[in-house]
């Protein structure tokens, strides 16, 4: 359990469905690549804190498809650190050692090619739903008529009513609707990488399943690479083509597991026997990793 799992290791448990294998690399740069990334705060002082140590992994860029990678692990294992490093957000970025590459280029700062959806509601309270969704286009200087037309289209795509909801303000929306706005606001910019930091963590279970379906549908449409942090093993198994299991002290990737793709809607898929078996196996693996981490001397 040291360092990161090697690339392409199908550490897949004997699932009922066969886990897919990575297609052979065709020379395309990886969607996301971490090379020996370490983040230490206040290095060399008494307040030194290691967030992640020597994290390396690769998420391939599948042409016209993209894939969803989910990140599971206990609090403080550095899941958010990994995600915010891809986004280029301080203070997690820049890494103390190592480098982060997105589509073959080293990350130098934040940009709209890597969209991010946060767990906390980050709708701009002073803007209407339409104003929120078109924020990024407005920053790019897209003319008002065009960005509003595009904004309305995306409001409809995330399951809101452009006629009724476009002029509403965030405080008039439910939590699920706010996250729909946040997703539309990110996807309208057509990012190649979508970063989601526990976006459904604050939602009730039924809304959560709806949002999972919505995410899968939109992801097929935009063909982007998704990195998704969650605390829920079910969510990680259902959404993930690839699950990264992380461990603490120091934060690192303990295992990388390929998952069969779920092709049914969340409510149907998550009651099937193979799904439960997959969840149980992953759960056992998580517990083993946590037990190993808490063993003395580790």
């Amino acid at each position: 359990m040291t360092g990161a799992a090697p690339d392409n290791s199908p550490e897949s448990p004997g699932s009922v469905r066969p886990a897919p294998v990575d297609p052979p690399g065709d020379g395309r740069p990886a969607a996301v690549e971490f090379r020996g990334v370490t983040k230490i705060y206040n290095e060399g002082t008494s307040r030194e804190a290691v967030a992640i140590r020597d994290v390396s992994f690769t998420i391939p860029d599948l042409p016209d498809k993209g894939e969803i990678s989910t990140f599971l692990g206990p609090s403080g294992c550095g899941k958010s650190t990994v995600l915010r490093m891809v986004a280029g957000l301080e203070p997690q970025f820049p890494p103390t050692r190592g480098s982060v590459h997105v589509l073959g280029r080293e990350v130098v700062g934040p940009g709209s090619d890597r969209g991010m959806v946060f767990q906390d509601y980050t709708s701009f309270d002073n803007r209407t739903v339409l104003g929120n969704v078109t924020f990024g286009l407005e920053c790019r200087g897209v003319p008002k008529r065009r960005r509003e037309a595009e904004g309305r289209e995306w409001i409809a795509r995330v399951g809101l009513d452009p006629r009724r909801d476009a002029a509403k303000y965030p405080h008039e929306l439910s939590g699920g609707m706010r996250q729909r706005v946040a997703i539309a606001r990110t996807l309208v910019l057509r990012p190649r990488i979508i970063l989601m930091d526990e976006p459904f963590g604050a939602l009730d279970p039924a809304t959560r399943l709806d949002m999972q379906d919505l995410l899968v549908r939109l992801w097929r449409e935009v063909e982007a690479t998704v990195m998704f942090i969650t605390h829920s093993v079910e969510e990680a198994v259902y959404l993930g083509d690839r699950v990264f299991v992380m461990a603490t002290t120091p934060g690192r990737i303990a295992a990388e597991i390929r998952m069969p793709a779920a092709d049914a809607p969340a409510r149907e898929a998550q009651v099937e026997p193979w799904f439960h078996e997959q969840v149980n196996q992953l759960q056992a693996q998580l517990e083993a990793i946590e037990a190993a981490a808490s063993r003395p001397g580790n």
């Binding site: 709209s112 890597r114 991010m116 980050t122 990024g136 920053c139 790019r140 990110t186 910019l189 970063l195």
Partner: peptide, 9 residues
């Protein structure tokens, strides 16, 4: 952070 990831200067 949100505005930065949406490409705001």
């Amino acid at each position: 952070d949100t505005a930065l990831t949406l490409g705001a200067s």
